[in-house]
Design a protein around this nucleic acid. Structure first.
Lengths: 346, 346
DNA sequence: TGTTAGCACTCGGATTATTGGAGTGCTAAC
DNA sequence: GTTAGCACTCCAATAATCCGAGTGCTAACA
């Protein structure tokens, strides 16, 4: 069967009504809409067709219809197409360059939660492709050396290195020169074991001590993926009875928001070259979230720093609004962080 | 009326039974206990007395009794007395010195949540009394200077300072010497405006540029109280029907766990010189938490770094266990972080 | 052939009765 | 001071009832 124009209009009407009310939609409700002038009986016939096509579902005999995952999918896909060129008019968010990246992310995620009434999350930027900018070892006291690493985008990492027998100033100075001249400009990815072992050789006779330091530095740089996830508005799910009426469900969902890894995998954007991606219900492959939809977007702060933003809500999420807000936000980030400063900035 | 021995025994029995079951306790249940050999009728008389004294409450006519806030209070106070000398036997937690303080705190708060089945929280250590250990300015590029500050306890702070006209190496070197010689060993608190302005004078003629740097440094050091709060196990509240049966209540509670400031004020320990403090229901002065109890404890990592840990649960919390675990935990932290340093204690 | 009115039927959700049992307070006897 | 006995209360769980929104189907109509 084919989805003709009238069927599409009806499907849209059903979904939009359901988005608003959260209640199954009956034929009568649709027939009363002015834009299509049909009796409820006709609508019923069409609905029957739509159901046969798997786009809508009847929770039980003699109830109204609700969209199926497949129905949502279709709706969202078409929506995205329409949205593609559209200009949004969200009011300007207060984004300013922050020295503290963390603070900025928290602000954003909070802003989103407040403005959408859904649960939101954001990852800290990852920066594999980031280049090393500057690096410094300093003597703190006899046994401790502070290693400071600055990467593009002014991402700063510190590491205190404990040593049984400290280095003297002379040695530290040499090391600093060596490190900076050899590693500068390399991306984090490029600094791997072979680079390090080459450096060790160059360091010459003191290599015993120095290799300790280098190991620690290498460790500090390529530090285990410390992506952070910040969340906000988890309690917004209580605003949607279909998510919170059943205490167990609500509990599982909120719980899912406490765990970092499941959240990260939600925001994975593998297999999608679109910046904005919508995953619906079962597509999420997460038992706790089977009644949810997740909209994710990439943000890019320049300098190879990019991360993901996610919004979690009920399937009857206001996709239109959410996609719009995300588009605006990522656009604004772009503007602030890469505007008129084509070389680079924090 | 006086709380004689028998009344106390009965009260204890009521509270303990209620802690286990969460259901109002009837006279018959108590009378069946072997340690006191009384009929239910007698118990009823005593209960009537206890109610008159405000220690227990009858949710409605002809129901069993539950402890009142006042009752809990009495119970907890006496419990703490008994507990005072007792040795606990919790199995060793894996605590090791972490370079990343954040990670340690997250581990602890998670450990607590898992082991108590309550919601838990911990503040990052505050360190007003911490002494400055080391400090370094480095030139990153023409316009940016990196300021690194190390305090006791190896707390490291970074700050990128943007300058229109950069400093040359010579100037930076001088500044480093000046800063370290003047500020070293001072506590964060001691480095206030007057110290800074004195420094500015000493810096001499280049003071224009330099004062920019100093301002930024001062700012970085005394950075707005950036106490963090980490939480875990918020969803544990779903394990207690009296907290989660009503969706609104549960929502409010979980929501309270998303906000930093309310949590901080919960963990305030003003007015209590005890390391461990129990607040019950209305004592918390927080509408969302009126059905909860909060147990808080101080931890001390030495070097003037101390913070608070909190456990939030239903009023019928297992106070005994919670207090025990907290005692153990703070003890272990003490041991690991200040071992062989017998001068001060928590 | 597509649309519509009409009608019998279904089913979930809300509301109202019904019941059982745990618990109390009181009284009188030990 | 303690206890047995009894009448009474009230919640919570279960069952019974009702209501209405919504459907599918059929027959008539344009």
């Amino acid at each position: 069967m084919e989805l003709d124009d009238r069927k599409w209009t009806i499907l849209k009407a059903i979904i939009q009504t359901y988005l608003e009310t959260g209640e199954p939609v009956g034929s009568r409700t649709i027939s009363k809409m002015p834009e299509l002038n049909l009796s409820s009986a006709t609508i019923r016939n069409e609905m029957s067709d739509l159901e046969e096509m798997g786009l809508i579902i009847q929770p039980h005999t003699s109830s109204g219809r609700i969209p199926s995952d497949k129905g949502y999918r279709l709706y969202v896909d078409r929506l995205m197409e329409e949205k593609e060129a559209e200009v949004s008019q969200m009011k300007q968010v207060m984004i300013s360059r922050q020295d503290k990246m963390e603070l900025l992310l928290k602000q954003i995620v909070r802003y989103l939660a407040v403005n959408t009434n859904y649960a939101t999350m954001i990852t800290s930027p990852q920066y594999h492709r980031t280049k090393l900018k500057f690096m410094q070892l300093s003597i703190v006291d006899e046994e401790q050396i502070l290693a400071t690493v600055v990467a593009e985008g002014n991402v700063v990492k510190n590491r205190i290195i404990h040593m049984e027998h400290g280095l003297n100033r002379e040695q530290v100075l040499q090391l600093n020169i060596l490190l900076n001249s050899r590693l500068n400009g390399l991306t984090i990815e490029q600094i791997n074991l072979s680079t390090i072992s080459k450096l060790k050789q160059e360091a010459g006779i003191q290599s015993d001590l120095i290799s300790q330091v280098l190991d620690a530095v290498a460790d500090a740089i390529s530090q285990e993926e410390d992506v952070e996830v910040y969340t906000s508005g988890a309690t917004n799910i209580f605003k949607y009875p279909e998510l919170s009426a059943d205490t167990d469900k609500a509990s599982g969902l909120i719980h899912a928001f406490e765990e970092k890894h499941p959240l990260l995998s939600l925001m994975d954007n593998e297999g999608s070259e679109h910046a904005i991606k919508v995953s619906i219900g079962s597509e999420l492959q997460n038992e706790n979230m089977k009644d949810c939809s997740v909209v994710t977007a990439s943000y890019d702060l320049g300098d190879g720093m990019y991360g993901r933003i996610g919004i979690v809500g009920p399937k009857r999420m206001d996709y239109d609004k959410v996609v719009g807000i995300l588009k605006d936000l990522t656009g604004q980030l772009d503007e602030v962080y890469r505007n008129g400063d084509p070389d680079k900035q924090n």
